[in-house]
Write a protein that binds this DNA or RNA. Sequence first.
RNA 1: GGCCCGUUCGUCUAGUGGUUAGGACGUCAGGUUUUCAUCCUGAAAACAGGGGUUCGAUUCCCCUACGGGCUGCCA
Length: 489
Amino acid sequence: MSVRVRMAPSPTGYLHIGNLRTALYNEFFARHHCGTLILRIEDTDRARYIEGATESLCRSLRAMHILPDEGVWINEAGQLIERGDYAPYLQSKRAERHREYAQKLIAMGKAYVCFCSPAVLDKMRQEQQKAGMAPRYDGRCRLLHPEESAARVSAGESHVIRLAFPREGSVTVMDEIRGDVVFDWNELDDQVIIKSDGMPTYHLAATCDDHDMWITHVIRGEEWLPSTPKHLFIYEAFGWKPPIFAHLPLLLNPDKTKLSKRQGDVSVEDFLAKGYLPEALLNFVALLGWNPSGDREIYTHDELRSAFELEKVNKSGAVLNLEKLDWMNAEYLKSMDTDAYLDLVLPELRKLGGDEALQKRVAMLIRSRLIRLSDVPDVSGEYFHPLRNLNPSIIPWKGQQPADVKEKLAAAREELAGLPDYLWASTDDLEHHIKEWITRRAWQNGPVLWPLRVALSGREKSPSPFELLYVLGREASLARIQAAIDSLQ
RNA sequence: GGCCCGUUCGUCUAGUGGUUAGGACGUCAGGUUUUCAUCCUGAAAACAGGGGUUCGAUUCCCCUACGGGCUGCCA
């Protein structure tokens, strides 16, 4: 039987970095086994539904190059579509089918109608807690005669449907990552599967859909491990073969709690907007909880797919090391193909002005200093407009006298003014020539190069004077040097 | 509280019944250099604790501690 896995986010907001990791592992697994990747939207909770969230989820997945073969997707026009033989994949549209399944469970004596209102349940909980007992539903509606229940339902009385779990014994969840996990039935509350609004809860909906869609492997977050017995109960009641389960470790905040908003950005959209490359983000997130070898950090999407093994996924949660993400993103920027790099950076530089030749030179100049694309203005702002507010006190090198500074700058300006054009065409040529010139004059590098560099950049810390000369060109360079000389008056 | 899961440098991780416990980010120190970034070299830094099993445990078992998840008519 071929592998079929699903990503099943609920449309309650943006694609979360934790969901991304789950989606990624599903994708890796599907591709590794030449299986099918399905996107199903779990939107049965109308109270938490957020308009546009499904579209946003699809866009983020697409931006990350996670492309489902089947299920909900978004077309070029931005409209939601459903593809595949098991539609609908928008779970709320399957509610009628879920209700049918629930009725079958009732008929089999595996579920029952419950009329206890939220207020009654609340009171029950409070009393139990006061008595020092574990809060749980006492199952009183299980005792109702089926005919009475049916009559009350027909009369329009508000109700839910609950699973009737065994009161004793245990159930074993076989987990691909954690091994066998045993739960006692008496620990579980009779789970609501159909809410009073007629919609199914996750437990019923996901289980039935997974079955109906022939899902072979359920790869999901660890938070689902404790409710897996409920799902197994449904599989068993219907005589269905359960899929293989794999519960992924959680992604954590720096304080080790389950990753959440509040402690920094967690949406994929935010990371992308900040200028992290999808490839770098993917690489980074993929290595949270799993690693192909341990002695290598940079992998392509394809390499990750072919190396992925569910059994090698870690058991413990992982804190996001955002500094490492920064490093990785910078690494991608530095090592990628130059044309691809320019395609990425040039659009950012165009916003700052200048002509294309200047933009290209700046792009190469800032390459080793760039962490995120959104940093472009910060590291390149001063190359596009004349310097303002140059602080003369930072121009001298290590206690150099103003007169000496002026002498050196003026000499450099004169030398540069007379340099033939071909020398301005490369950083190396400029460096070679200037250094030779300094040697010829029997000067030290420091007293010439430091003032020259500050004059050109306006900053204490900057690229080398040669890089600056090359990028700025003769005209702008001479103007900046003159401005620096003048500022020393 | 109950149930369940987990625990290797600060963080992400590799790893094995016998290793100098490896790599990466970050940190620190050098080198290159007029400064910064890049680049190169090096350093500090971990098997939660206690019992077993064993000739030998970081590795297998138990207990404790700590952390987390679940305990909803949320997913």
